[in-house]
Design a protein around this nucleic acid. Structure first.
Lengths: 239, 239
DNA sequence: CGAGGGTTTGAAGTGCATCAAATAGTGTGG
DNA sequence: CCACACTATTTGATGCACTTCAAACCCTCG
């Protein structure tokens, strides 16, 4: 699949005229990176935005003393770095590969131009941005009102497909340490909180795989401290 | 000043053709509300968005057990409730008047239509939304890495005009209890944290007015746990 | 098998929340 | 102008959740 086709398959770029797609793809470069690769850092001048084809990317900010605040962990299909368009062309966060990844780098300039040219694209971007804003509202709420075990339960629930109801098994998408960071807690806290969650909700944990006997029980425990009830929309995506 | 003129004076609606402004203003209603008035609640079907002319509005979410998570406190010039456009036409948070306010209610339908019609407006909305997203990123970071005294210091710094450097006096814009909620802490914690901040940074507090002897000292203390240094962009605005 | 990272467990500390109560401030009617 | 009522703010005492530091365990992979 060539880059134009890939772009066309994205919800954001769906229905765009071919001429614009072609222009967006001009100068694009696909590349593979190993774990640990830092794609860009917070504050750096931005020339590209990125499309993640496979692997996992961590978006984060770092304070002077080295403490990281993880903003999001992205999976295949995510676009990131495009926020730089609205921040004086500097990246508002850093991005690091946490699981070997295939990434397509695209020139920001063309995207900017395309948004200014194509009304449909501007609307699609607006919709996508607004959606992420609301996910962030939820994120802020989660972090301020949920306990560590509840946050983990909420995270697990979001790994379950919407419509399932009986017993399900899900797999943590990446390291527990990373999940912990994603949820804003220490690995030790994660470990202890997960075992508390186990006792409270009867889930069964074996390594990265988690068996949920009763989704209802899990969501009753996890979502009681949240304004939105179970099919919670906060997902994993950023840009 | 009539409503069309007011709309035109907003950055968001600046440069819009008169016909669209006229249409946006059609059906608008200005009204005054006292403290405690709830304008809408989270999940409610949305018909209007709002423009705050004076007073203060609290945006928040509430869990089943009544715990509130304050998302933002808005001041004159803020637009809110427009997020409903992208959330199946329901409000993603509740809004309550916390300081007697003059508010203009505008029909959401016309806004939606105007965004779909006018490319410039779509771009302006996109820009505004993206900006708020980044403020939220900062907000998430603040909440996860700053201590209570630091968060207060950061809040105070954002009340100072950018260019001032010498000793300044600022005034808390609303109740300390509300500031505490805005910063995600209890009133008691706020009180103690403020007095700690006083000892650490030499600021002088008298009621709602705060005298800062050295902005440098305050920002060194407050921003050390933050990725963005002093002139921190996180402001008070939402939509 | 052994090295090294991920994960768990233990012990102790810190920060914020909670409950309770005192104090300061503000607006009211007399 | 004062006393009262009510709310905002502060202070004290205590508890809980999460962190930190340390060490053990476990799993994978060369």
């Amino acid at each position: 699949m060539n880059i134009e086709q890939i772009l066309k398959s994205l919800p954001l770029f769906k229905n765009l005229p071919d001429t614009i797609i072609r222009n967006l793809a001009d100068g694009a470069a696909a590349q593979k990176y190993n774990k640990g690769k830092v794609l860009f850092i917070h504050g750096e001048a931005a020339r590209s935005y990125y499309l993640l084809r496979s692997g996992w990317i961590k978006l984060f900010r770092e304070t002077l003393d080295g403490t990281q605040a993880v903003i999001d962990i992205l999976h295949a299909g995510s676009i990131f770095g495009d926020s730089a368009l609205f921040d004086q062309d500097t990246y508002p966060y850093s991005a690091e590969v946490v699981e070997a990844a295939e990434i397509i780098a695209l020139p920001l300039g063309q995207l900017k131009q395309a948004i200014e040219t194509d009304h449909g694209l501007a609307l699609a971007m607006l919709r996508a941005t607004a959606e992420k804003r609301q996910q962030q509202d939820s994120e802020i709420e989660h972090r301020s009102v949920q306990s560590a075990p509840q946050r983990i339960g909420c995270f697990i629930l979001r790994l379950v497909h919407k419509d399932s109801s009986g017993p399900v098994t899900v797999h943590l998408p990446y390291d527990k340490t990373l999940v912990a960071a994603r949820l804003g807690m220490q690995p030790e806290t994660f470990s202890r909180a997960l075992s508390k969650l186990r006792h409270e909700t009867g889930i069964h944990v074996r390594g990265a795989s988690i068996e949920i006997k009763s989704i209802d029980q899990l969501s009753r425990y996890s979502c009681s401290a949240c304004s939105s009830s179970f099919p919670c929309k906060t997902l994993h995506a950023a840009g």
